[in-house]
Amino acid sequence: MPVSLLDTTLGMAVRMSTPYLFAALGGLLAQRSGVYNFALEGMMLGGAYFGYFFTLLTGNLLLGILGAVIFGLLSGWLLAFISIRFGVSQMVVGLGMNTLFMGLTSFCSRLLSNSRDGSALNLDRLIGNIISGPAAEIPVIGSVLCSQNLMTYLIIALFVFYAWFTRRTEYGLALRAVGENPAASQTAGINVFRYRYLSVIISGALAALGGAYLTLTQVSRFSENMTNGRGWIAIAAICLGRWSPAGTFFSCLLFGLASAASNQIQVLNIGIPYQFALMVPYILAILALVSIQGKSSHGPAALGKPYMKNR
C-alpha cells in the first residue's frame, strides 16, 4: 500500500470514527448509570438536522452546534423522564423515539427543501481543521493527528475526562455504583434518580453532537436518514469495548477504519460493487458481537432494570 493511500485512509478513519465516538460516549455514560439509550440513532439524526438547520438559519456554526446540543439535551430529558420515571421498557422507548425523530427530521427537511431552491440548501462554511502548515505535512501523523477539526479533539478530551471522572472522583464512583446496585446506592445516600437523569440528558447532547459532526464538517447538507445505523454501531462499539472508556474508544476507531475502508473501496473502484463496501461496518459489528462471547464483563449489573423508589 503506498504511503499516500495509507495516509488518506487513516486520516479518514479518524474523521469517520468521530460521530461513533460521540454517540458511544453518550451511550456509555447512560449505560454506566444503568439506563440503556437505544435512541442514539434518532438523537444523532436530530443533531444532524438541527445543527444543520440552525447553521443555515443564522450563518453561524457555533449557533448551529448550540442548536444541536439543545435538541440533544431535550431529547435526553424525554428519554430519561420516560424510562426512569415510569420504569417502562427502555428498548421500546428508544425505538419509539427513533421513529419520532426520523419523522420529525424528514418532515422538517422536506418543508425546508420546498421553501428554498436546491443551491440555497448547502452550508457555505463548515468546521475546518485547526492545525495547518508543516505539521500537517508529516506522513501518517500529519493526517491522523493534525488534519482533524475541533470536534475530534473535543471528543478525545471528553473520553480522557470520562475515564478520569469515573475512576478517580467521588461523583464518578457514585455514578458507577448507581449502575451496579441502585438500591444500595440509595441507602448510602446517593441520589440515584439525579445521577440517572443527568447521565441520560448528557448522553442525548453527546449523541446529537455526533450527528451534527456529519452535517457541519462532512457533507454540508442534511439528507433523510443520513445517520444510517451509526447510533446502533455505537452501541455495538460499547459492547466490544466492554464498557470501558479505552475499550470503547478503540472500538470506535476500528469502526471508523471500517467505514474509511468502505469509502476507499468505493472511491478506488477496484471492482468490488459499492454496495458490498457499504456493508463492511455492519458486518464488522456482527463479528464484534460474536467475538465478545463468554467474556466476563457484561456491563453494569443493573443495566436496563428500572429502579422505582417507593413513593
Partner: peptide
C-alpha cells in the same frame, strides 16, 4: 414523514 411522527407519539404514549 408526518407518518413517523404520529407513530412515534403513539408508541411513546402507549408505553
Amino acid at each position: 414523514p408526518i407518518l413517523y411522527i404520529l407513530q412515534g407519539v403513539i408508541i411513546i404514549s402507549v408505553i
